[in-house]
Write a protein that binds this DNA or RNA. Structure first.
Lengths: 118, 118
DNA sequence: CAATTATATTCCCTTGAAGGAATATTCCTT
DNA sequence: AAGGAATATTCCTTCAAGGGAATATAATTG
């Protein structure tokens, strides 16, 4: 990791929608439609932000039939990991992150698109 | 700290010049002219980035005669602190940060503009 | 193969921010 | 008060990126 790559990581983190996505993916791998549901944002918006995160190697994806499952990248990244921890801490205080997690837990993850249902 | 403020912090961190500035200020408070010297960047550029950091409360400044001394903000900010630590770790590997620190140490800090000479 | 579902991409518009040149401001010295 | 040094601001141009509407692609189902 060099200074430019470090900047790239922060660029990924400096959008609230991406932070919300990462916060959710910190809990579990998720398909696009679930992210869309939980975040209440448009399909394009979610899809573009996921592409952005993927291009910068913060998340990775795997196709499962019709669905794309996204998860936090497995490649070790100390900066990302440290900041995901911070995110987790904040998510017990911040109303936006809290509400997202609440909706996530209320979401039926037994559907065909869910990673654990494979 | 809420999700928007968190984004703001990351926005501050996603420019390499600002990271270089923060890396230097992590060592010691510095005046603009020293930052300019060490970073080898234009006066406008440094000044604008400092203004940006100050507007977002990551640094604070104090006038000393002709000079403005900038330092990392004293207000507690866990996210900033955590990432300054990361920056410090990286600065022993990354060529840009390393070179900056080396030039900083080679800089005469006994001049009138330096905080410790007060 | 046609229709449907899930997701990605393209086109377009708008905005924030980076950087340089020129200028303004602030403070010091004489 | 005038000049000089340090720093800040304004004006301008360029560019990345956010978001929506429409369209394209990929896989599934009938």
């Amino acid at each position: 990791m060099n200074s430019d790559e470090l900047c790239q990581v922060y660029r990924c983190l400096c959008d609230v929608t991406r932070l919300r996505i990462l916060n959710l993916l910190g809990e579990d791998a998720l398909c696009v439609c679930h992210l869309q549901q939980v975040l209440g944002e448009s399909q394009v918006k979610i899809s573009k932000h996921l592409a952005y995160l993927k291009n910068h190697r913060l998340v990775e994806s795997e196709r499962r039939a019709n669905w794309m499952i996204y998860r936090i990248s497995g490649a070790p990244n100390p900066i990302l990991e440290e900041n995901l921890k911070c995110l987790q801490d904040l998510s017990s205080e911040d109303p936006v992150f809290m509400a997202d997690l609440k909706r996530l837990r209320a979401t039926d993850t037994s559907a065909a698109c869910c990673p654990t249902s494979a």
